[in-house]
């Protein structure tokens, strides 16, 4: 009786694994993150080229509130991509702080915008936006869709242990990238419009997409 058999597994099982061994290319978290950032940059650039830049946006480009909003969105996208890559490598853990902080960041941004209203706040514009069927929110979801699907396809080749939070971060990353594109394309600066049409949906849609992402990741290489 071999050592394996003594512990409950037979030698044939070990043999079958050894026989099937083929060289693999090991992943590196740093490389993964660099690739994710590169993909994000390419994606945002392509989407901006497709939807264009709003005429009024040029005037806001070097204003502090605009730069703060853009920085928060870019940082959210990059941090979420880093976290979902990290979550997909066994033995790498993400602290509970990030799991709450990142999804809540767009909400905080919405709240700050509603309070500060750097470009004004008009409820009439909000009513008009809602009556039009929230086109910016629909665009946010549409632009995020390909980035979300690509990131899930990549994550499926890794080993996501916690599929729900990995899915949440993947969704957040895609939606934050989409919000960057939208921020450049949409000329409206109304605080209600930005808060309720651009930023709040990031959290709402990310939470909704997390469940779907989790289901898709469950069929990954790791979970099959």
């Amino acid at each position: 009786m071999g050592q394996s058999e003594a512990n409950g597994l037979n030698d044939e099982f070990i043999d079958s694994l050894v026989e099937r061994l083929e060289p693999v290319r090991p992943v590196r978290l740093a490389t993964l993150c660099a690739c994710a950032l590169l993909l994000q940059t390419v994606f945002v650039a392509a989407a901006v080229a497709w939807v264009g830049v709003g005429s009024a946006v040029w005037a806001r480009f070097f204003q502090l509130p605009f730069l703060v909003c853009m920085s928060v969105l870019v940082a959210s996208a990059a941090a979420s991509a880093w976290l979902c890559a990290r979550q997909s490598i066994p033995g790498r853990y993400v602290g509970g702080f990030w799991k709450y902080f990142l999804p809540l960041l767009p909400l905080a941004l919405s709240a700050v915008l509603l309070i500060a209203a750097p470009w004004g706040a008009d409820t009439a514009q909000l009513t008009s936006y809602l009556s039009q069927g929230m086109p910016c929110t629909a665009m946010l979801a549409a632009i995020a869709l390909p980035a979300w699907l690509i990131s899930l396809a990549l994550l499926r080749t890794l080993a996501p242990l916690d599929t729900l939070s990995t899915g949440l971060f993947a969704s957040l990353s895609a939606l934050a990238q989409s919000a960057v594109v939208l921020q450049l394309a949409c000329s409206q600066g109304d605080a209600y419009h930005l808060a309720l049409g651009h930023y709040l949906p990031i959290t709402v849609l990310a939470l909704l997409a997390a469940g779907v992402s989790s289901a898709l990741l469950r069929g990954s290489k790791f979970k099959s």
Binding site: N7, G8, L9, F13, L17, R20, L21, V24, R25, P26, V27, R28, L29, S88, I89, P90, L158, A159, K221, F222, S224
Partner: peptide
């Protein structure tokens, strides 16, 4: 145990040097 070892086999590329 078998399941875990099969998983180790499948995701061996995720071990970082």
């Amino acid at each position: 145990c078998q399941d875990a070892l099969l998983t180790v086999h499948r995701v061996r590329h995720t071990f970082e040097a």
